[in-house]
Structure formats: structure tokens, C-alpha cells
Amino acid sequence: MSGSRATAVLTALLVLALPGCRAAAADPVQAAPAGTTSAQPAPAPAEPVVISTDPPLGAVDVDPVTPLRVNAGHGELTAVTVTDEDGVVLPGGLDADGTTWTAAADLGYDTSYTVTASAVGAGTPAQATGTISTVRPRTLTLPTVYPEGGSVGVGQPISVTFDEDVTDRAAVERQLRVTSTPAVTGSWSWLSDRTVHYRPEQYWPAHTHVAVDVDVYGLDVGDGVHGQQSEHVEFDVGPEKVAVVDAAELQLRLYVDDQLVRTMPTSLGNRANQTPTGTYVVMGQSRHYTMDSSTYGVQIDAPGGYRTDVEYASRLSNSGIFVHAAPWSVRDQGRRNVSHGCLNVSTADAGWFYENFGRGDVVEVAGAGPALQVWDGFGDWNASWADWQAGSALATPAA
């Protein structure tokens, strides 16, 4: 090699070796020192277990139908005990994953309950103890439902009567439910501060099954009065039985499922004691009954007063209208009105009516005296459908 070429090669090698000089290729990635590893994050600490109740511990004036629940957060419940002031244990149970305990019974009025619970989990276990107190009513009201069961006729309204005044009718009505098979269109209507009735738009269809729920336990019905208990009633509607009479003809025609089955000559109220015109519902029956004018304000010894024993009496109104045996007026039956307001029929016909018609069956009287009032017995059908609906506390006011 000539001297000049050797000098050039040596110079190139020295340049490559000098610090800070860059080769044409990128710098190689520096490797981690042998024997070392990457750092791992420390695990988060486990959440502590938390116990809560609904309503919360310390709550007062609690509605007794509020479902009492005990809940575990970040863990599972291991024990829950709820006792009243007498040490009686409130029943309840855990859900499938063990995180919620739910009471299986309503709470009592004006009662303090002690709740004790424990729970475990990945974090710190927990325990909780405290009390929950329910509302103290000013007084209680007991609802009575009619019919209470059994079988009734197609005209039978449902009656719910309270033994205290209801001032929050809407609150009560929201807790009333009627379920029928087949379904019907119906409405509640208030007759007074203590009584509300339900009827369909038309008579019940024959052979309907009806269930009534009055869910007022725990409910404030107004002015600090609370429902004493709830009620559930079921009844059945029998065949359609309707008796029809026109005062101009005085023949009581009885129909079963729209078929005429019997015709009875009758005598209605005389001029001084006219039978009200309207739709009646059989309220009850007595094999023997004493008619007493003093029960509606006319003393026995007063003009028009009376006290008479009769057979086969089927009551149609609170004001004293019956279908009953009147052997003394057989000659007038079908011809003229001579009774004190009742539907007089022969003993044989009264017995047939007594045996074949019953509570809830219908008697329609046309062309007689002034109109039967809605509040007289089960006079519910004497209101138009619009007027009946207007009696509901939940009715929308007319525009």
C-alpha cells in the first residue's frame, strides 16, 4: 500500500472512534443491566364492609308498611336480628347473594324496633346496632267489606265502610282494587265520609268472579287517622236474576238469564205510601219478619202506624221496602195498590221468590212513586253512570 492510501484509511478509522461522532445507523437501544426486573404497582387495600338500613337507623314516625331492609356493602351479612320492645323477633330473610335482608312482615304502629347486624368481606368486617320507630296514629279506623264472600246476584255493589270519618278520600281510593273475571268497567263512588261503593257500568256479567283488596293498613286516611288493617275479599256472581214490575200493570215478572220463569200479581204502595220508582237490590231475607212502622218514624198507634208479622220477607231498601207474603191483600194484587210501600204477593209467590232470588238480585220498579235514592239500601243503580263516576275522589273535574 502506498503511503498516501495508508494515511487515508487510518484517518477514517480515527474519525469513527472519536467521541460524539455519529455513524450513519441509529444508536442501539441500551439494555437493562443484567439481573434486574420492571417495578409492579402495590395492590389497593380492600374496601371496608359497610352496613346500612332502609329506613336508616334512628328514623322515627316510619310508615309501618315500609319494607325494612338491612344491606351490606363490600361484603355479606352474617347475622341480622330485629326485635320489638317486647323482644319479639321480626321475621325476615336474606337474598341469594347474602347482601340484603328484608323483613317478611309489616311493622306495628307506635313501636320501636332494635336492629342488630354483622357482615364480613375482604375488608374490615362491620357491625351495626340502632333503632327504628314507627308512627303513632291519633286513632285507627277499621274497614268492613260487603259482600264478605259467597255468591251474590248481578246487581250487588261492593261496599266499604269505615268506623271513622275519612277526610283524605283520594288516598283511600288509591288503595282500593277490584279485580274481576271477566273484566268490567266500574267505578268507586263515595256515599258519605265513611262509606264508598263500587259498581260496574252495567250489571255484573253472570258467573263473574270478583276479588276486592282494601290495602289501608299503615295509611293515613286524614287527620291522623290510620287504617287498622287491610282486607281481602272474594265472591262469585250467580245467574242473572231480574224481577220487573210496572205500577200500571201490577205484574211482577221474574227473569233468570233473560228467560221469564214466573209472573206474580202484586200490590204496591197506596197513595199515601207510594213505592219509590227505581232499581232495587235484594239486601237480605227473613223467613219470618215483623213489619214495624216505628222503624221509619211512624209510631204504631199513630194514623198509618202498624206492627204486622209476615212470612218470606226479602228486604229491598233501608227505608222498609220488601217483597213479602201478604195473604190479606191477595184480592187486590194485580188490581190496585194497597200496601204501605212493599211489594205484596201471595204466600206461595213470596215463598218462591224467597227460595229462588236472594242477595244481590235485582228488582226494577217502574211508574210508581218518587225516585229511589242512591243511598237507600243498595240504590246505586239509580244514579246515571256519569253521576256515579263523579262521586269518585279520583274523578277528573268536568271542564
Rank of each mutant, 00 (worst) to 15 (best):
S4V: 15
L14P: 00
L16Y: 08
L16C: 03
L18W: 12
R22L: 11
D27F: 09
V29P: 13
A31K: 05
G35D: 13
G35E: 10
P43N: 01
A44W: 02
P45Y: 10
A46C: 01
D63M: 13
P67C: 08
R69I: 03
H74W: 15
V80W: 14
L90Y: 10
G92W: 06
D97Y: 15
G98L: 13
Y113V: 02
T116L: 04
G121K: 00
T124F: 15
T124R: 09
T124N: 06
Q127L: 12
T129V: 06
T144A: 07
G149W: 10
S151N: 04
V160K: 01
T161E: 12
F162P: 01
E164Y: 06
D165F: 14
A170P: 00
V172P: 02
R177G: 07
S187L: 10
W188D: 06
W188K: 04
W190P: 03
W190K: 04
L191A: 10
L191N: 06
L191R: 07
S192M: 14
T195M: 09
V196H: 03
H197A: 08
P205K: 03
H207P: 02
D215W: 14
D220N: 15
D220P: 10
V221A: 15
G222E: 05
V225E: 13
V225T: 06
S230T: 00
E234Y: 03
D236F: 11
E240W: 07
E240G: 01
K241W: 02
K241P: 01
V245Y: 05
A247Y: 08
D257P: 07
L268V: 05
T275Y: 12
S286H: 09
S286I: 02
S286F: 08
S286Y: 11
H288P: 00
Y289H: 05
S294C: 11
N318A: 08
P327Y: 09
V330I: 12
R331C: 01
G334C: 13
R335W: 11
R336E: 14
V338W: 13
V338C: 06
S339T: 08
S346D: 08
S346N: 03
D349P: 00
E355F: 04
G358R: 07
A368P: 00
G377H: 04
F378I: 00
D380G: 01
W381S: 00
D387T: 10
